[in-house]
């Protein structure tokens, strides 16, 4: 697949339930306080989508890119509503933009993800920017 053809591509929706044990483990690993807290830590939604997705880096793989050539360039979270243990969430992602820099030596892919609770409440919007070195497909 050509990189420009990715723009607007919607990835299959991912569903996940916020699990108490997983949240506790994540908190411990990132040195977070509140290990008995029922709220998801600030970066947990990024992890949860990858934990539950069948193919978390589908569009990168579809480009034929080596995972070792992919770096995370930027990440943002906009929070609309706190996430609690037991929440059922859906993650809907699309490729918002793809562009090159340095005469094609670097390929940037911007993915936007809307996170919505099962009762329709908007929870958060995530934006990730990945950069692929040397076009990645040698």
């Amino acid at each position: 697949m050509k990189s420009q053809e990715l723009i607007g591509l919607r990835l299959p929706s991912t569903r996940a339930t916020v699990d108490k044990g997983r949240v506790r483990t994540f908190r411990r690993v990132v040195g977070s306080p509140g290990s008995n807290d029922d709220t998801a830590p600030l970066t947990y939604l990024f992890a949860l989508e990858m934990l539950e997705s069948d193919r978390p880096l589908a569009f990168v793989e579809d480009l034929g890119v080596d995972l070792g050539s992919v770096l995370h360039s930027e990440q943002s979270f906009e929070y609309h509503h706190p996430v609690h243990v037991g929440d059922e969430l859906s993650f809907d992602s699309e490729v918002a933009d793809v562009f090159e820099k340095k005469n094609g030596a670097l390929l940037f892919v911007i993915q936007k993800t809307a996170v919505t609770r099962a009762d329709g409440v908007a929870v958060a919007d995530l934006t990730r920017t990945l950069v692929v070195r040397n076009g990645g497909n040698n």
């Binding site: 908190r27 990132v30 040195g31 977070s32 306080p33 509140g34 709220t39 830590p41 600030l42 970066t43 360039s73 930027e74 990440q75 943002s76 979270f77 906009e78 929070y79 706190p82 934006t127």
Partner: peptide
């Protein structure tokens, strides 16, 4: 994020971004 959460309640944080 952990350091932020020690100072601010999660519900008071509207946006968190890094490069």
């Amino acid at each position: 994020g952990s350091a932020l959460e020690e100072v601010f309640a999660a519900r008071s944080i509207s946006r968190f971004s890094t490069r």
